[in-house]
């Protein structure tokens, strides 16, 4: 029981990971891990990136994926360095201030990075494409666009999270059955009382 805010010793690696993730506005561990791997794997990757032309995300466009409703295809045009993955985001206000929900990375091909996303809510939404410096996690370039999402499917269905209960119907039937029995018992008891009172009074004389 120690008072609320207190400094916590944090393992350095974890701290670093979080820092990277936070600075990038990422929290999807895949994305964070991806960034880390990229940073670490680079045979002088960071240096190479820094030396090359700085990437610029010029535009992002959103369009329905043909034949795959309600999926949306997000496309970002990148100039300059096109080897670094582009991260896509959608803005949510579910928890107060607008926050970027990471939708995943995509590596540009011929200057265009595309990602397919299955919307989980509808409304006029802001989509962002950004490239972060793999070494620092800092976003160096981004572009945003609005798009009105009209169809969505829930991200995780609650049924999928459920343990099946195959006996449920049986239970429902049983409750009705039991109520009927209880009703019958009360009816029988009352009828017995009625029968005795009437019958005895009626047959008082032989």
């Amino acid at each position: 029981m120690t008072p609320t805010p207190r400094p916590h010793p944090r393992p350095t690696a974890r701290l670093a990971a979080r820092l990277v993730a936070r600075l990038a506005g990422l929290a999807g561990l895949t994305a964070a891990a991806g960034a880390l791997i990229l940073a670490g794997a680079g045979t002088g990757g960071g240096a190479a990136w820094a030396a090359a032309a700085t990437p610029t995300v010029t535009t992002i466009s959103v369009a329905p994926t043909p034949g795959k409703a309600p999926n949306l295809t997000l496309s970002a045009t990148v100039t300059g360095d096109t080897a670094t993955p582009v991260d896509f985001y959608v803005t949510t206000t579910l928890f107060g201030n607008p926050q970027l929900v990471p939708l995943g990375p995509a590596t540009p091909a011929k200057g265009v990075a595309t990602l397919t996303w299955t919307p989980t809510w509808t409304g006029n939404e802001t989509f962002t494409a950004a490239v972060a410096n793999p070494a620092t996690g800092k976003i160096v370039t981004k572009a945003a666009a609005s798009y009105t999402v009209t169809a969505a499917t829930p991200g995780m269905s609650t049924a999928q999270a459920n343990t099946p209960k195959p006996l449920a119907t049986f239970g429902r039937g049983m409750v009705g059955f039991l109520l009927a029995i209880v009703f019958a018992i009360w009816a029988t008891l009352l009828a017995t009382l009625w029968r005795v009172s009437r019958g005895v009074a009626k047959h008082a004389t032989t």
């Binding site: 929290a27 561990l29 579910l94 809510w121 995780m156």
Partner: peptide
């Protein structure tokens, strides 16, 4: 804290994740 429907979750540090992906990948 998150929402299965919109598939978004957030912690107190402001980290936002896609819920299903976060659970699955970890």
């Amino acid at each position: 804290i998150g929402d299965l429907t919109t598939d978004v979750a957030i912690n107190g540090l402001g980290n936002v994740v896609r819920l299903s992906e976060f659970i699955r990948d970890n």
